[in-house]
Structures are given as structure tokens and as C-alpha cells.
Amino acid sequence: MSDTATNPVNPYLRLERMPSIWCPGCGIGTSVNCFARALTQAKLDLKMTSIVSGIGCTGRVSGYMSLDSFHTTHGRAIPFATGLKLANPDLNVIVYSGEGDLMAIGGNHFIHAARRNMDLLVVCVNNFTYGMTGGQVSPTSPGGATYTTAPFGQFEEPFNLPHLADSCGAVYVSRWTTFHVRQLTKSMREAMTKKGFRFIEVISPCPTLYQRRNKLGDGLDAMKFYKESSVVKNGADTRDLNIGFQTPITVGNFVNRSRPSFIEAQNKRYTEVFGPSYKPYPEGPHGNGANA
């Protein structure tokens, strides 16, 4: 092994905190590889890039990344990130958390940040369960799957996350699985260089809890399932993106549009109201540090 070669993800990690707490076959680390490469490709100024997480397995991502890392309270990464971004719009603020954190306890914050078109990239790793607490039912849990808190099978309707993000006004929406590493990297890169509320769902294995409890094998079995059962449909109608128990998963880039971000809309309004005496609030970079 050559000593000169460096893993391309290393510069983005707090190496002294390795190994991660993630289980063998968990996909969160895979998504982090894509994220690190996207950061390189998007040429983000890392000094001006902050990562904010809530609580849970994916919530640990912020603390493993060698960026300004904020590991906040359960469900509240988005409102924390909102304050951070509004206080210093020059920062690139990325929220990285799980579906239980962002969509259950944090669901209210998610829909309102999307509605406001807050200038945030939200990466949601969806593994269909609460992993950190031991395999409870989550807001994306598919019908029929069993959980410690749904021992006789989930019967609630799960969220279709791209549709939720789309209908609340997100300007960029995509979904990939951890099998689709190149596509996921490309979507992350695109999203990093766009302004407004951007949402990427990453379907990921949870071998220890979701797979095992539902007799779906290990992480590799989940990855093989994603390979065999995913259907790429860029531009698909987000209403058609429900995920059932072991049903085919539609992946792709679904939404890419523009509308004024929160600060842009505020500046427009206040300039109309106050006239030229109004000094516009700084709007920050268009994603990659270069004003578009």
C-alpha cells in the first residue's frame, strides 16, 4: 500500500473520530462518500460551509465531517440552519439528517423551510426506521413491515418525501438509493450550486434493524435489491413516488426550478416598500461561492 495515496474522503473527515458508529452494511457512510466528492466537484469554499444535523444515526454525519459541524436537538436541524444561514448568508448551510428526525419530529420545520424557500440543502437519509433507538416505525415505514413499535405490521400511510418537498415548494428534489453512487454524487453537486430549498432523499440500508427484523438479509442484500428494483425516471411526477414494502423504487431528479429565496423575496418586498433608502440584506453566494 502506497503511503502517498489518500482516500479522497479523508480530507472531509475528522479522522480521529473514526471508526464511525455505523453498523456493518449501513448505507449512511456511502452517502457521505458521495457528499465528499460532490463538495470537491462543486468547489464549495469549505471554510464557509456548515453542516447541521439533528439526532439519530444520520445525525452523526455532522460530527464526522471536518466542516463547521452542528449536532443539534432532535428534529430541529432545519430551524438551527435557518438561523445560521440568515445570520451569515455567505455560509453554505447543509442539513444532513434521517427521515425520523427531519420528517416526524422535525416535519413542521421541514414544510415551512420549503415553503419559505430557505436557502438550505437538505440531505435526508431514509432507511425506513429509527435506528439509533432500536428499530421503531418511522414516517416513511412501508405498509406491512414490522417494527418494535409496530409489531403486527405498519398500517399507516407513509410519506412520499419527494412529493412532500415538491408540494411545499422545494426548488430541487431528487431521490437515489445508496446503490446509485454516481447519480447521487451528481445530484448533490448540482444541488450544492443552486440557491433555495433543495432536497435530496437517499434510500439506505439498515441491516441491523429494518432488514433483520423484516427478514430482508443484510446491507448487501438491500443494495442488490436497490440495483434490481430501482427504476430511474428523471422528471417523474412526484405524486407517483410512493414506496411500498419491497416494491420497485423510483429514483431520479424530479424537480429543478427557480423561485426567489427567503432573503431575495424579503429584499424585493422591502425595496418596493421602503424605496431606494432600503439597504438590501446580503443574499450570499449562489451555492458555489461565485455569484451567479
Binding site: A5, N7, V9, L13, P24, G25, T30, V181, R182, T185
Partner: peptide, 16 residues
């Protein structure tokens, strides 16, 4: 091609 590096969830392998 470093596809192994992209997949590796534990940052253990990479290709050059």
C-alpha cells in the same frame, strides 16, 4: 475507477 471508494461506508478502500 474508485467505485469501491464511493461505495465503502467505512472509508476503508479507494481506487486510484
Amino acid at each position: 475507477c474508485d467505485l469501491c471508494g464511493l461505495y465503502c461506508p467505512d472509508f476503508s478502500i479507494f481506487g486510484v
